[in-house]
Amino acid sequence: METRLQKLIADAGIASRRHAEELITAGEVTVNGKVITELGTKADPERDHIKVRGKLINPQLAARENVYVLLNKPRGFLTSLSDPEKRPLITELFPPALGRLHPVGRLDFNTEGLLIMTNDGELTNYVTAARNHVRKVYEAKVKGVPSEDQIERLRRGIRLEDGTRTAPAEVKSTGYTVTNAWFEVILYEGRNQQIRRMFDAVGHSVLKLKRVRIGHVTDEGLPLGHWRYLTPEEVARLKGGPKKGAGKRRKKSTAKPSQEVAGKALEKSDGAASKKPARAAAKRGAGHSSGSE
């Protein structure tokens, strides 16, 4: 699979991605004997010979072990590897020993829930491509109680404020009070802050969001702020098949941010529901919400 050279160099452990860009512009990277100086140039390590300062990096790339991690992201963390505003990053929730991982899709700063981190571009492309129909399931708490006509508009696909139209989505009511409603939303695509923007388009802003499932992988047994390795079977199914051995089995980890961060993330929700949401008894009490991206 073709990948940007700076990423391949970083994946091989030669340099950070920023330093890799400097190596490229300095003319110290070649592909099949040709000097490359243009950033954004792509290469396929299974087909192309890639050298940095005259040394072939293909063996390091071939020996690299793929890592697949599932995080239950708390609110207040940015799904990014860097931020000029110095906001908390999801990378702070992992030990450095995991190496450089990238997020599979995104969750916005104020959204909780499941996020896969990996160094496997194949899995990333499969899970995020709408054509592969990998379900992303969210729980949403919204302001007010939308009418059935408004919910039907969301199901059919709705035009957002920038003129784009969303694909059809599955939207199911799971509870309501006089002032709020809860929904389960299933998407197969992933636009920026899509669920928030969808409900804004029908006049009901999202108050809380959480992603609870990616494909067949759920948040069961994984507290906010904690992470674990995906099993080989989970990886194989996320790639679209029942293949075995897609990832090396590792012990489950309970690694997490500090108790203070995890504690803040587990905030209790307010309000008494006249009709309890489906997941309310264990997680919301009377009004916990869930997520979008």
Score class of each variant (00 low, 15 high):
residue 12 A to D: 02
residue 15 A to C: 14
residue 18 R to S: 02
residue 23 L to I: 00
residue 29 V to I: 02
residue 29 V to F: 05
residue 33 G to P: 01
residue 36 I to L: 12
residue 38 E to K: 15
residue 41 T to H: 11
residue 46 E to T: 04
residue 46 E to F: 13
residue 47 R to Y: 04
residue 49 H to N: 13
residue 49 H to Y: 14
residue 52 V to N: 08
residue 54 G to K: 03
residue 54 G to C: 08
residue 55 K to W: 03
residue 58 N to S: 04
residue 63 A to M: 08
residue 67 V to H: 14
residue 68 Y to F: 11
residue 70 L to P: 05
residue 72 N to R: 07
residue 73 K to Y: 02
residue 76 G to F: 11
residue 79 T to D: 03
residue 82 S to I: 00
residue 83 D to S: 02
residue 86 K to Y: 13
residue 92 E to S: 13
residue 96 P to T: 00
residue 97 A to I: 01
residue 102 H to G: 04
residue 104 V to A: 06
residue 104 V to M: 15
residue 106 R to F: 09
residue 107 L to V: 00
residue 115 L to A: 06
residue 124 T to C: 05
residue 125 N to Y: 15
residue 127 V to R: 12
residue 130 A to F: 14
residue 138 Y to W: 09
residue 141 K to G: 11
residue 144 G to F: 12
residue 146 P to T: 01
residue 147 S to F: 06
residue 149 D to L: 14
residue 150 Q to A: 12
residue 151 I to Q: 06
residue 152 E to S: 03
residue 153 R to C: 07
residue 163 G to A: 08
residue 165 R to M: 11
residue 165 R to H: 11
residue 167 A to I: 10
residue 170 E to G: 07
residue 172 K to E: 08
residue 175 G to K: 15
residue 175 G to M: 14
residue 180 N to I: 01
residue 181 A to E: 02
residue 185 V to S: 09
residue 190 G to A: 05
residue 195 I to Q: 15
residue 195 I to R: 14
residue 198 M to F: 10
residue 201 A to R: 10
residue 203 G to I: 00
residue 204 H to G: 09
residue 205 S to M: 09
residue 221 G to E: 11
residue 223 P to D: 08
residue 230 L to D: 10
residue 231 T to K: 12
residue 231 T to I: 12
residue 232 P to N: 03
residue 233 E to W: 11
residue 235 V to N: 08
residue 239 K to I: 00
residue 241 G to R: 13
residue 243 K to E: 14
residue 248 K to S: 09
residue 255 A to L: 06
residue 270 D to Q: 12
residue 272 A to Q: 10
residue 284 R to F: 14
residue 286 A to W: 14
residue 287 G to I: 05
